[in-house]
Design a protein around this nucleic acid. Structure first.
Length: 456
RNA sequence: GCGCCGCUAGCUCAAUUGGCAGAGCAAGUGACUCUUAAUCACUAGGUUGUAGGUUCGAUUCCUACGCGGCGCACCA
């Protein structure tokens, strides 16, 4: 029982508090951990009056010598104490009681997910494992920056408020600029601005930022989310596949120390090269049909056979029909890391025509656990082809497709100056973090997920 | 947007077929100078998510609304 260790000063939040007559034992916690403090009336003098007023969750500072209790715990024997911040509202701390027979009884703690998301500050304050998940998120993003910077990529910032939105198929949020008296859109993608920078001579650029999509919310969709987009001149989608493998395997190694992750009882193997399956061939394997050859009526019949409601299927045509075939017959099987390659042209309006088949584009998406992690292509750099693809989108739009992309004349003008052949890729950071941090809900990797306002 | 489930004290949860709404932790008061779920005694805490309806009587049954979770749709 050491009585006179070194003198220390420390501050923290009161995590436990056990007054016992003229002494009190408690634990202080801060980001670095927790330590026991021991306050005695005979050592604190007139400060003892303050000690008697302290409560759980107050933030205090103490000074004193380190000692060891009879139980052997390193403890600060306080010679001074001060209040740094008062807690007026108890944190929802759980207490775990271990009874003599070994059964465990929990008291309190937060079970209500709404409480955790709405009052994330309290969730973080009482759950070290939640803090750890968000630290991991930051390490993942930092590691991605490190890798891209090391590969010669330039991190840039492009407009979030855009007069025209584009680069993806989604409905935008609309806002209004008062001084200009005009509508602006919150970006749904960075794509078209980043490719303008390729025209400008930056040959490797990337941006990590929020995109905004006015769509439904569920456990893999938040209205604002974090996207990595990168573009590399004089590269194609094959190079992007290599880069995707490099990034993903590096991150898997960082979190697991190896090349596998176990999720939902399944061992995911990230040993490169990842599996590759052609879009058309993969759907043929699942459905027996070639989506580029078979009549649309035949494809619709096949969907109904597979259990899709007939009245719903009746409305599917063109790109929508292709998406549905993919979602029904191929996507659910993509558990192990898999590149789906060579998407049909109608569902890839910004991707370059395939060098071997004009019906296809040089595009891939990376899937893991049936979820899309990355989307990449050889970028369409022919302004005339891009113009006609935009015009095609315009027809879809006129036909009522709200997610068809608007015609961007300035982007065509940029391409007319000549954009070098370019490979580009987008990676949804939130979903990547979900995979790496083993979280099932996007709300568990976003600090303040979108919620409806609280009612009084 | 649709469907299912949930909402009781600051937190976690009870409450028989509809019959006075309770407990643990947290809070307050008192006792206790090596505690760690501290212990012991006492006290306070509620328009049972909101608004209606049925009923002698509603936490419980019905309707609408709000918020959340899950699933579907949409999408990344």
């Amino acid at each position: 029982m050491g009585e006179s260790g070194p003198e220390v000063r420390l501050a923290g939040r009161i995590e436990s508090w056990r007054p016992k007559g003229k002494v009190v034992f408690g634990h202080l916690e801060d980001e670095s951990g927790r330590i026991q403090v021991y306050l005695r009336s005979d050592q604190l003098g007139d400060r003892w009056a303050l000690a008697e007023l302290l409560d759980l969750d107050d933030c205090i500072g103490v000074a004193g010598r380190l000692m060891r209790t009879r139980a052997g715990e390193v403890t600060v024997r306080a010679s001074a104490v001060e209040l740094l911040a008062k807690s007026l509202r108890p944190l929802p701390r759980g207490k775990r009681e271990v009874l003599e027979d070994g059964t465990v009884r929990d008291h309190g703690g937060v079970a209500d997910p709404e409480f955790r998301y709405r009052q994330r500050y309290a969730d973080l304050a009482v759950h070290p494992e939640v803090r750890e998940a968000f630290r991991l998120r930051t390490r993942i993003v930092a590691r991605i920056r490190h890798l891209l910077d090391g590969a010669g990529f330039l991190e840039v910032e492009t407009p979030i408020l855009q007069p025209l939105y584009g680069g993806a198929a989604a409905r935008p949020f609309v806002t209004h600029h008062n001084a200009l008296d005009m509508s602006l859109y919150l970006r749904i993608a960075d794509e078209l601005y980043l490719k303008r920078l390729i025209v400008g001579g930056f040959e490797r650029v990337y941006e990590i930022g929020h995109d905004f999509r006015n769509e439904g919310m569920d456990r893999s969709h938040n209205p604002e989310f974090t996207m990595l987009e990168l573009y590399q001149a004089y590269a194609d989608y094959g190079d992007m596949m290599g880069l995707a493998e490099t990034l993903v395997t590096d991150l898997v190694r960082m979190v697991s120390g190896g090349l596998t992750l176990t999720r939902d009882g399944v061992t995911l193997d990230f040993t490169p090269p990842f599996a590759r399956v052609r879009f058309v061939e993969g759907i043929r394997q699942g459905s027996g049909l070639d989506v580029l050859e078979a009549p649309e009526a035949t494809l619709r019949e096949r969907l109904v056979q597979a259990g899709r409601p007939a009245d719903e299927v009746a409305g599917f045509t063109g790109g929508k029909l292709l998406d549905e075939m993919f979602g029904t017959f191929l996507e659910p099987r993509l558990i192990q890391p898999t590149f789906v390659v060579d998407y049909p042209k109608p569902i890839s309006p910004l991707a370059k025509e395939h060098r071997a088949d004009p019906r296809l584009t040089e595009r891939f998406e990376l899937f893991v656990q049936g979820r899309e992690l990355a989307n990449a292509f050889s970028e369409l750099n022919d302004p005339d082809d891009q113009r006609s693809r935009f015009e095609e989108q315009g027809h879809h739009r006129a036909a009522g497709d709200e997610e068809a992309q608007p015609f961007d004349a300035d982007y065509i003008r940029a391409l007319e100056y000549g954009m070098p052949p370019t490979g580009g890729m987008g990676i949804g950071i939130d979903r990547l973090v979900m995979l790496l941090a083993d979280q099932d809900s996007i709300r568990d990797v976003i600090l303040f997920p979108a919620l409806r306002p609280e009612t009084a």
